[in-house]
């Protein structure tokens, strides 16, 4: 790797993305207020979107912002505000002594191991998948066409399965959020 120079721009983009992602992620963990955590989450999500753009996944970057920032985090914020859990949400007493250290150790070791494995394995660059039949990955609008083709051929079944997934999620959410008066009276 040493001796190869990367364009300043690419490095800069990487650093920006990495900063956004990591600062945001640490923010989610460290911040006490859930609204602030949600905002940190948005930061990470944007960082990921930047990283997507840098890796010529423009379409996904846009979808990332629309789905995550535009819907998921809004939903989070909605629930936080709706339930009014925003201000008093601190870190609670740990139920098991040393759980945090243990989790940290476990996760740390796993991630370190992963990084070592990532670094030490040379993946098969150029292994062509069935889907593109060896055609190189396009950028820009060609990319959308490729994505669309893949979704409706190789991943057709998966795509149809998402329909089931969304139906069950919507029905589930409504069943859960539904409030039945008879029951509330009983609870009260």
């Amino acid at each position: 790797m040493i001796g190869v120079s990367y364009s300043i721009g690419a490095v800069l983009v990487f650093v920006t993305a990495a900063l956004l992602i990591l600062v945001g992620a640490v923010g989610v963990l460290a911040v006490r207020n859930p609204v602030h955590a949600a905002m940190s989450l948005i930061m990470t999500l944007f960082g990921v979107a930047v990283a997507f753009v840098a890796q010529s996944a423009d379409f996904l970057a846009a979808v990332q912002v629309i789905v995550y920032a535009g819907a998921i985090v809004v939903l989070f914020l909605f629930v936080i505000m709706f339930l009014g859990v925003d201000r008093r949400e601190g870190v609670r007493v740990e139920p098991l002594v040393g759980q945090r250290a243990l989790a940290g150790l476990g996760v740390g070791l796993t991630v370190a191991g992963l990084i070592v494995l990532l670094a030490r394995s040379h993946w098969v660059s150029g292994a062509m998948s069935v889907s593109t039949n060896g055609a190189p990955l396009a950028t820009g609008s060609g990319n959308v066409a490729q994505l669309g083709t893949a979704v409706f051929t190789t991943y057709l079944y998966a795509f149809e399965a998402t329909a089931a997934l969304l139906v069950i999620a919507v029905v589930g959410a409504i069943v859960l959020a539904r409030r039945e008066r008879a029951l509330d009276e009983e609870a009260a």
Binding site: L60, L75, A127, S131, L166, A169, A173, I174, L176, A177
Partner: peptide, 26 residues
């Protein structure tokens, strides 16, 4: 890998994430 499958997978992961959040928040 210069392969579109990875990006398609991301698409599905996003769908799953959305579905999970809906139910989780519910």
């Amino acid at each position: 890998l210069s392969d579109v499958a990875g990006q398609v997978s991301v698409f599905f992961v996003m769908v799953v994430a959305a579905a999970e959040v809906t139910v989780g928040l519910g």
